[in-house]
Amino acid sequence: MPARKRRRWSGWTIAVLALLAYLAYRWITANPVLGALILALLGAAAFAVAQVRLRGRLPRIRRPLAPHDPHRMSPGQFEEYLAHLCVRDGCSRVQVVGGANDHGADVLYVDPHGRPGLIQAKRYAPGNSVGNEHVQIVNGTYRDYHRCVHASIVTTSHFTQAAQAFAKRVGIRLVDDARLDRWARGYASAAPWN
């Protein structure tokens, strides 16, 4: 992102702003009730504009981190949960992007080292395993489509041997239920980007 140019104020601009501020001060002191009402409205409008601008800079996360068991979450809640873990651990630009056409990504982020990454979330029952086809989808999209440096698949279950072998070969990190539990408890080494 290119750096913003600093705005330079001319002498005339400063003089006009100072004159307007003086005239506003004189009018408010002459009309204190109406002036206080107008100042309150201007303050509320400035606050609303600041909130809208700030919201554009914050991660797109809709709900606060729930201390619930990931196995009891819906797939959407699980994606939000993983996004919150990323934010908690110092990631920036975290976005939940899962959906019908997510192209193998449910959470996009920039890790604490400044590298873009993605998570494919698989909230499965403990008896079900994540297969090789999911690793292949992520491998086919994370670099070229999503422009990420690394990718991971995070599940509440485990991975098949074929999925583990293929992920190891292509460098995709797999986070099973045990590693997810360690990550949720704050162990930095269990985070998908480590």
Rank of each mutant, 00 (worst) to 15 (best):
M1Q: 11
M1R: 11
R7L: 13
W9I: 11
T13W: 06
I14M: 12
A15T: 14
A15E: 15
L17D: 05
L19A: 11
L19Q: 10
A24S: 04
Y25T: 06
Y25F: 08
Y25H: 05
W27Q: 01
V33K: 00
G35I: 01
G35R: 01
I38H: 03
L39G: 08
L39F: 11
L39Q: 08
L41G: 09
L42E: 07
G43L: 06
A45P: 00
A46G: 15
F47N: 13
F47K: 15
V49R: 11
A50C: 02
V52N: 02
V52K: 06
R53D: 01
L54K: 13
R55I: 09
L58Q: 14
P59I: 00
I61F: 03
R62F: 11
R62K: 14
P64Q: 12
L65A: 13
P67F: 07
P67I: 12
H68F: 06
P70Y: 14
P70F: 14
P70L: 15
M73I: 08
M73A: 09
P75E: 09
P75T: 07
G76H: 03
F78H: 14
F78P: 10
F78I: 14
A83G: 04
H84V: 04
H84N: 07
C86W: 04
C86N: 11
V87H: 07
D89M: 13
R93N: 15
R93A: 09
V94Q: 00
Q95P: 01
Q95G: 08
V97G: 02
V97P: 00
G99M: 01
A100S: 03
N101F: 03
D102H: 03
H103R: 10
H103V: 04
H103F: 06
G104E: 05
G104R: 05
A105W: 00
D106F: 08
V107W: 00
V107A: 03
L108A: 13
L108G: 07
L108M: 05
D111G: 08
H113Q: 05
G114H: 13
P116Y: 01
Q120Y: 07
Q120K: 06
A121I: 07
Y124F: 13
P126C: 06
P126T: 10
G127C: 11
N132R: 12
N132L: 15
E133H: 12
I137A: 14
V138P: 06
N139K: 09
G140K: 02
R143Q: 11
R143P: 10
Y145N: 04
Y145H: 13
Y145C: 04
R147M: 02
V149H: 15
S152H: 10
I153W: 05
I153H: 06
T156E: 08
T156K: 06
H158N: 12
H158V: 11
T160N: 09
A162Y: 00
A162E: 01
F166W: 04
F166E: 11
A167M: 00
K168N: 10
K168S: 09
R169E: 02
V170S: 02
V170K: 02
I172V: 10
I172M: 07
R173W: 00
R173L: 00
R179V: 08
L180H: 14
W183H: 01
W183L: 02
R185Y: 04
G186F: 14
Y187C: 01
Y187F: 02
Y187L: 09
A188I: 01
A188Q: 03
A190D: 03
A190N: 02
P192D: 14
